[in-house]
C-alpha cells in the first residue's frame, strides 16, 4: 500500500507542477519572488555528502609527471610524484569513468607536449564524489564528458575565429601541465573534495593567471560545499555577484538576462528548470586584486547539458543558444582579461 500511496502522491505533484508551467518552459524569472532570493551563507561544516567508496584504477587517469620541487614542498602529505587520487582520496573517491572515455582522457593529457592550437577546452579532473553521472559509472568531474565539450567546441569554432583543438582535454588539478591551459572548465563542483596537491595546483594556476569557469551545481548544499572547497584554494577571496553590466556579458554576445538552463531531463519534458533548492540562477565570480575575474561561477544552471544535448530536437533551442552564448563570452573574456 505504501509504495502505491507514494506513487500517487508523486503523480498528483507532477500534475500540479505541469499546470503551473502553463505549457511553457519555465524560466527563472517566472519564479515567485519569495523563493528567488537564496541564502548562500555557508552551513555548518562538514556537509555530509554521500559518496560511494570505490577505488579508481590509476591507469584510467593519466597521472602527472614529476611535480616541481617547490610545488611538492608546498603540498602537505603524500608523495608529490604519485597521484593523490590513488592513495589519499580514492577510498571515498569518484566513480570510475567508462573505459571508452578513459582512453580519450589519456590522449588529451599526452598531447600537451605539442600544443599546436591556441585553445584547448580544458576540463578539470578533480577528486570528488558522485555527480551528474551518478549511476552511469563516471566521476563527478566527467559529467557530460566528453560530448558536451566536443559539441561546445564545434559551435565555438563556428562562431569565433578561435583556433581551438577539436576534442576534449581533461587534466587533473595536481598535474603541473595544467598551467599550459589558461582556461579551465569544472562542473558538478558541489561534489568536489580537493586533496592538498589539488588545492596547491589550482591555487597556483589561478594566481598565475589561469581562468576557471564553473557550471552545473545546484542549491544551497552544493553551493556551501563548493564555497568551502574554493575557500581552501583562495582563502580570503570572497565570491561576489557579477552585475549584468559587467564586460563578461557583452564580450561577443550581449546578454541582458541570466537564464536558468535546465538539465536534459527537465528541458525536454518541460519540467521545472530548477533542481533541488536552486531556484534562481546566478553568475558570480572571484576577483583578483586588480578587479579581474579569476573564476566565473554559474550556479543553479546547467550549461553543460545544453551544450551536450543541443542537437536533441526535444531540448529547447532557447536554452542551448543561451548556453553557447554564455560559453563563448566566458571563453573570450577568459582569454582577454
Amino acid at each position: 500500500m505504501r509504495p502505491l500511496f507514494s506513487s500517487g502522491l508523486a503523480l498528483v505533484a507532477g500534475i500540479l507542477l505541469v499546470s503551473v508551467a502553463e505549457g511553457e518552459v519555465r524560466r527563472s524569472t517566472e519564479r515567485p519572488p519569495e523563493v528567488r532570493r537564496v541564502d548562500r551563507t555557508l552551513p555548518a561544516w562538514p556537509v555530509k555528502t554521500p559518496v560511494r567508496s570505490m577505488r579508481i584504477p590509476s591507469r584510467w587517469i593519466a597521472g602527472p609527471p614529476e611535480l616541481p620541487g617547490w610545488l611538492a614542498e608546498e603540498t602537505s602529505g603524500g608523495s608529490p610524484s604519485r597521484p593523490a587520487v590513488d592513495d589519499a582520496v580514492a577510498p571515498r573517491g569518484p566513480l570510475a569513468p567508462p573505459p571508452s572515455r578513459v582512453s580519450r582522457l589519456a590522449t588529451a593529457a599526452q598531447q600537451t607536449l605539442g600544443l599546436t592550437h591556441e585553445f584547448y577546452f580544458t576540463r578539470a579532473a578533480y577528486t570528488g564524489g558522485r555527480g551528474g553521472y551518478f549511476g552511469r559509472g563516471a566521476p563527478a568531474w566527467a559529467t557530460d564528458y566528453p560530448k558536451a565539450d566536443i559539441q561546445f567546441l564545434i559551435v565555438l569554432k563556428r562562431l569565433t575565429n578561435l583556433d581551438a583543438w577539436d576534442d576534449e582535454n581533461a587534466i587533473r588539478l595536481d598535474d603541473p601541465r595544467i598551467r599550459q591551459f589558461p582556461f579551465l572548465y569544472a562542473l558538478e563542483v558541489g561534489y568536489m573534495t580537493l586533496s592538498p596537491p589539488e588545492i596547491a595546483g589550482l591555487r597556483a594556476y589561478l594566481d598565475a593567471g589561469g581562468f576557471l569557469m564553473v557550471d552545473d551545481f545546484w542549491g544551497t548544499r552544493e553551493w556551501a560545499a563548493f564555497e568551502y572547497q574554493i575557500s581552501r584554494v583562495l582563502p580570503g577571496r570572497p565570491i561576489q555577484d557579477i552585475p549584468l553590466d559587467h564586460p563578461l556579458f557583452d564580450m561577443v554576445y550581449d546578454i541582458d538576462e541570466v537564464l536558468q538552463v535546465p538539465a536534459l531531463g527537465r528541458g525536454i519534458y518541460g519540467r521545472p528548470t530548477y533542481e533541488r533548492d536552486g531556484y534562481v540562477p546566478t553568475v558570480s565570480g572571484i576577483f583578483d586584486d586588480d578587479g579581474r575575474l579569476m573564476a566565473v561561477l554559474n550556479w543553479n544552471t546547467d550549461l553543460g547539458d545544453a551544450w551536450e544535448h543541443a542537437e536533441n530536437p526535444m531540448y529547447p533551442v532557447e536554452f542551448s543558444t543561451y548556453a553557447f552564448q554564455v560559453g563563448v563570452n566566458t571563453v573570450v573574456y577568459g582569454m582577454s582579461h
Partner: peptide
C-alpha cells in the same frame, strides 16, 4: 589581434 589569443590576456596583465 586577428583572433582570440591568450597573448592578449597576458600582455594586458603584464603591463597593467
Amino acid at each position: 589581434e586577428g583572433e582570440p589569443r591568450h597573448e592578449v590576456k597576458f600582455i594586458r596583465r603584464a603591463i597593467e
